[in-house]
Design a protein around this nucleic acid. Structure first.
Length: 282
DNA sequence: CTAGGATCCTGTCAGC
DNA sequence: TGCTGACAGGATCCTA
């Protein structure tokens, strides 16, 4: 679930509360969720927190880095002098921790605690020697972020996948990294392109519009702070979802298109739920 | 090489 | 109420 804007929001949030924190103890509640030896982290301090695509990197002293991928349902929740939570929005943000969905718990010398919650167990923590990060298969395979390439390169990259739907290709992190199911739908709406269109039919001009739209929707989301806890629980205690304010098409099936007033439809493209306006997107 | 579908896992929700 | 199937903000593996 968390896509680039959410992961970047988490990166910024955790960096402000976690920088220089020294690990006291790491508890692994679910073996599948932690690759490597948790003992390797004890006594190490967090040097910096970086992001590549949707992957977070906790660069630690002692030449060790923790790779964190939240996949669909991962959340990182910090409780300490200042609290912070981000990732898949849920009650976990405000509930007692650890709980049934807590897979990893990192306790720090200063008393702060970082919880990794993940309902579906697709996400993971992975301990990697920092020097070996450049060899990581997943990180190496990542394509450029939308800001790191021009329209020409984007067009060439999608043109290579002429038989695939544009939606499928936007979700392929090897082609362009950072977009997930929400921002793919939003970017396609923004640029007026039907998600089912095969890449071979996308013109150079359309590719440029799409790239600009991808940047725009993600920038807008990062500026608003992703779908973080701050906006999730309103002051009156009610549940607010940032997505409701942000999304023009995602999750709006059956509702009016904000542009033409027509009806937003939900179909299946590339095996994923896909939201679009049949009148605005050609 | 490509493209599509199944798969990992738990929880929730719609429909009967 | 209880059951069943569909589906979920991701990515990989398998097949053709």
């Amino acid at each position: 679930m968390p896509e680039l804007p959410e992961v970047e929001t988490i990166r910024r949030g955790l960096e402000s509360v976690l920088k220089k924190s020294v690990v006291k103890n790491t508890t692994v509640f679910c073996e599948k969720s932690f690759i490597g030896d948790p003992e390797d982290l004890t006594g190490r301090g967090i040097y910096s927190i970086r992001r590549m695509g949707k992957c977070l990197l906790f660069v630690m002293t002692g030449k060790v880095t923790v790779m964190v991928h939240l996949r669909m349902t991962g959340q990182l929740i910090y409780r300490g002098a200042k609290d912070f939570a981000g990732g898949h929005p849920s009650e976990n943000f405000v509930s007692e921790l650890p709980n049934k969905q807590t897979r990893v718990m990192m306790e720090f010398e200063d008393g702060g605690v970082l919880y990794f919650n993940d309902q579906r167990k697709f996400g993971f923590f992975k301990v990697v020697p920092t020097a070996e990060l450049i060899n990581d298969k997943f990180l190496r395979s990542l394509g450029p972020e939308p800001w790191r390439m021009d329209a020409e390169e984007f067009f060439e990259r999608i043109a290579k996948r002429k038989g695939s739907s544009i939606k499928a290709v936007l979700l392929d992190q090897k082609v362009i990294c950072g977009l997930g199911n929400i921002y793919a739908d939003e970017a396609l709406f923004e640029s007026g392109i039907d998600p089912r269109r095969l890449c071979g039919t996308i013109t150079e001009e359309e590719a440029e519009q799409l790239l600009l739209a991808a940047r725009e929707v993600m920038e807008r989301s990062i500026e608003a702070g992703g779908s973080t806890m701050a906006t999730y629980v309103k002051p009156d205690g009610s549940r607010g979802n940032y997505l409701d304010k942000f999304a023009q098409v995602f999750g709006r099936e059956g509702k009016e298109c904000v542009r033409c007033g027509g009806e937003i439809e939900k179909i299946r493209v590339a095996g994923r739920g896909t939201h679009f306006c049949p009148r605005c997107q050609k």
